[in-house]
Design a binder for these strands. Structure first.
Length: 560
RNA sequence: GCGCCUGUAGCUCAAAGGACAGAGCAACAGCCUUCUAAGCUGUGGGUUGGAGGUUCGAGUCCUCUCAGGCGCGCCA
């Protein structure tokens, strides 16, 4: 449809040119935007202002010429106006909007779906927190963002795989085992000192205690090597199952879990480094092995294998990304905590070193979350092991509020998360505004059904009759139709930009339209035909709100 | 010191390079014998951190500068 409008304008320009009204070399791209304010039409184009630059003719003059060539007005257009510095504002006929609504209703639950993704495969890797402790709030934000982005991409026709990369190799696992072991010994009366780099959280104590509960003093005297292996496994299992449980509570599901240590076991790290070596991007210096990332714009080269023969984290990360590349996705998206931003150049260097375009990998940074309570920062010290976990936050405020707050901001903006605000079932909490709209519509449908004019539900008689929708004549009603019409655009734009917060803004606006309308206009009254028309409109809003909330991972209450 | 992110209303945040920079919250003033008041209506509130530049047009792009956060390991 927008295509139709663009064509109409392009035709007008074409005729204006061939008749010599405007001289220009080529017909430029025709922009078509939706004006912010009322009274500026349904659509607007800035093409006159753009042309003003190349032709030297004042924008308003060009706009007038274009307008002249648009007449006689095509059937869907109500009027064309020139405004401001040279905008051409186009207003469509009401009949057009009724037709749109009809189409939206016909699309039903599929409304908003598109196929700009054309079935291309995208892998989104997110959370990927180390299995050395429970998830914190920052991970929660990454989880919310990754989940919403994945859902968005799916909605516009990509095939999406959600993956969690488990860093279950390296020193950290050793440290974890040592930490648990030290606590274990302490609890059994030993004065074993706690490791310097150990993990101090209370969850470590819990793991130690669970071992005592099950196996008592069994490991008090056993040879350490063996003990560490066992402790590492027990700790890993408990922490991973905790992480999975937290994610489940948040409603976030992964398609695959990829283990770092499987890369080592399968010699994939060796292979990756060898491949880079054969391409000339690996060299030895000062007893270490280096990756020549500076060849691809990194500020310096990076060590992949240390002097002691151990691989660095970067080495396995390179192998992991090589593996991802070989799995043949059309696009790889990583969602990282913003504190890892320094890693971007070296990761991109690795992608290019393997011969893939840099664009193959898109890294989204999810900024830090500051926990706040009533405006005051919540003290946290990772070193002392004192921090508030994601689970505690979710238990306190509920998953919907947590997810929604994470998603109302751009991923790369710093975020203060106020626990008291998130907890309140009040105006201050944005998620309720939307959910309330949904619940309100559900209640309305129930009420209608009770009175025998259901338009929803399995056995609802379809009240369709071509003229019914035209009874929606109020400006508020047309407003709502126009907003609903925007939905697929919003989804596509949010998916393309990988910015789920656009959806929350839209949801707020749509919910406002509903609440405002609901207050002004009684939906169910004695005029059955009008009631049906209004109920159809309400049903459509509900479908859209539900769809958007689903994409964001937020529940859609039928009652509140 | 270098690099990345962010500076927009009292607070939290929006705004494909487009029209008079918008929402929510907070403040103040109103609205429930009616389908959900977790709602609605109204009022006040701004030199978009600052200075230059590009452009017909800049919160948005470029340069400089100030402030905050985060990085700058042969840690992960």
């Amino acid at each position: 449809m927008r295509e139709d409008l663009v064509n109409i304008i392009r035709d007008a320009l074409g005729r204006a040119r061939s008749e010599g009204a405007i001289s220009m070399e080529a017909i430029p791209e025709i922009s078509l935007e939706i004006p912010k304010r009322k009274g500026q039409g349904d659509f607007a184009t800035t093409v006159a202002m753009t042309l003003s630059r190349t032709t030297g003719v004042p924008a308003r003059e060009i706009a007038e010429i274009i307008t002249r060539y648009i007449t006689p007005l095509p059937s869907i257009i109500e009027g064309v106006e020139i405004a401001g510095p040279g905008f051409i504002n186009i207003t469509l006929k009401k009949s057009f909007w009724y037709r749109m609504l009809h189409e939206i209703i016909a699309a039903g639950n599929d409304y908003g779906q598109s196929n700009i993704g054309k079935g291309l495969q995208i892998q989104v890797e997110f959370v990927s927190a180390n299995p050395t402790g429970p998830l914190h709030v920052g991970h929660g934000r990454g989880a919310a963002v990754g989940n919403a982005i994945s859902n968005l991409l799916e909605r516009v026709g990509y095939r999406v795989e959600r993956e969690y990369y488990i860093n279950d190799a390296g020193n950290q696992m050793k440290n974890l085992a040592l930490s648990v072991y030290a606590r274990y010994l302490n609890m059994l009366g030993s004065d074993q000192s706690f490791p310097e780099e150990g993990y101090k959280g209370t969850y470590v104590d819990d793991i130690a205690r669970s071992i005592i509960d099950k196996e008592g003093r069994k490991y008090f005297d056993t040879p350490k090597e063996e003990t560490f292996r066992i402790f590492s496994k027990i700790a890993y299992d408990q922490i991973m199952s905790g992480i999975k449980e937290d994610l489940t509570v948040a409603g976030i599901i992964f398609d695959s879990w990829f283990s770092e240590s499987s890369l080592f076991a399968g010699k994939k790290v060796d292979e990756s480094i060898s491949e880079l070596r054969s391409k000339g991007y690996i060299y030895e210096d000062e007893g270490a092995v280096w990756f020549r990332s500076s060849a691809f714009g990194d500020e310096k080269d990076r060590v992949v294998r240390k002097g002691d023969g151990e691989y660095t984290y970067l080495a396995s990360d390179i192998a992991y990304h090589k593996n991802k590349l070989e799995r043949g996705y059309d696009q790889i998206i990583d969602i990282w905590g913003a504190d890892h931003h320094g890693y971007i150049p070296r990761m991109e260097a690795a992608i290019e070193a393997f011969g893939y375009p840099r664009k193959k990998l898109k890294i989204i940074l999810s900024q830090m979350v500051n926990l706040v309570r009533e405006g005051r920062p919540v003290q946290m010290s990772k070193r002392a092991g004192e921090f508030i976990t994601l689970r505690e936050v979710i238990d306190e405020v509920g998953p919907d509020a947590a997810l929604y707050i994470f998603l109302t901001r751009r991923p790369d903006s710093h975020l203060d998360f106020d626990l008291e605000v998130a907890k309140k079932a009040s105006d201050e909490n944005p998620v309720y505004y939307i959910q309330y709209a949904h619940a309100r519509l559900a209640s309305l449908a129930r009420e209608a059904e009770k009175r025998g004019i259901a338009v929803e539900g399995s056995n609802a008689p379809e009240p369709w009759n071509p003229g019914t929708l035209e009874l929606l004549e109020l400006p508020e009603e047309l407003d709502i139709i126009k907003r609903l019409y925007l939905y697929p655009d919003i989804i596509e734009a949010a998916a393309e930009a990988l910015e789920p917060h656009r959806l929350t803004i839209y949801l707020h606006d749509l919910s406002w339209s509903l609440h405002n309308y609901y207050y002004k206009q009684r939906i169910i009254d004695d005029n059955i035909e009008k009631t049906k028309a209004r109920l159809m409109l309400m049903k459509t809003i509900k479908i859209v709100i539900a769809d958007a909330l689903k994409i964001l991972g937020v529940t859609r209450p039928e009652k509140m």
